[in-house]
Amino acid sequence: MTRHAIVRDILANMGDNLTSVTFAYAEISESVVFALLLHKTTLSYITTITDHDENLTERDDIPPASDQFQALGRVLQLVPRSCPKLLVLVLECHEMDMDHVEEDEWICDGLRHLRVRIRGLDSKEKVDKALRLWKEGREKKYSKNKGNEEMTGVEDEEADQTIDSNLAETKEIPIEVRVARYLLTFDDLDRVWLGTGT
């Protein structure tokens, strides 16, 4: 029996109240993702770990992607699209494609901690810019929210305008802006790692 099959079988036979799972990212497969979805109504923490000692946290460089599951990245999108109670999603080895992410809504509205990589955010400068745009939009959104409770919906528009002002006259939306906009849809999100610092 392969290690993928062992992880799949453990997940499939865990009972009805599984809230947290941690496993080696090397063991992810299509069948493991589908086994996770058996617990979509209860899962709140999904964490993958690497098989090596290399610390991916707080780096100045972007480590090269060695993602055996990259070709099935769309399948992995089923997890945040199907798990409404998800608070923590840690997939440091996976490089998400924003085209796949933006195809449909993640329903985990209470997401607080996200650790993923995004295709195209391939330098510290790009990662830092995406995080800065997200933080600026978030600060503007919350300052408006505190100042006037009747501004609901307007703050999202103004946060988008803050991001849009960074576009200048470019015709194509930069990956940093797309990522920041998506992150701003999660009101409770306060810890984000996209390849370098948190």
Rank of each mutant, 00 (worst) to 15 (best):
M1K: 03
M1N: 02
T2E: 09
R3S: 06
H4V: 00
V7Q: 03
R8T: 13
R8E: 14
D9M: 01
I10A: 03
L11R: 08
A12V: 02
N13S: 10
M14L: 10
G15V: 09
G15M: 06
G15R: 07
N17Q: 08
L18P: 12
S20I: 00
F23Q: 06
F23T: 08
E27R: 08
E27C: 11
S29L: 01
A35K: 09
A35I: 11
L38F: 02
H39C: 10
K40A: 11
T42H: 14
T42Q: 13
S44G: 01
Y45C: 06
Y45M: 05
Y45W: 08
I49M: 09
T50V: 03
H52M: 05
D53E: 12
E58C: 03
D61Y: 12
D61P: 00
I62L: 08
R74H: 05
V75R: 07
L76K: 01
V79I: 15
P80I: 09
R81F: 09
S82E: 10
S82N: 14
L89I: 14
L89E: 07
L91D: 07
H94I: 13
H94M: 11
V101Y: 08
V101E: 02
H113C: 10
L114C: 13
L114Y: 15
R115C: 13
I118L: 02
R119W: 02
G120W: 12
G120S: 08
L121S: 07
D122N: 15
S123P: 14
K124P: 02
E125D: 12
K126M: 13
K129H: 11
L131Q: 13
E136A: 13
G137H: 08
R138G: 04
K140F: 02
Y142E: 14
K144Q: 09
G147Q: 11
E149M: 02
G153Y: 11
E155I: 01
D156E: 14
E157N: 04
D160M: 15
D164P: 04
L167W: 03
E176P: 05
E176L: 02
T185G: 04
F186Y: 07
L189M: 08
V192R: 06
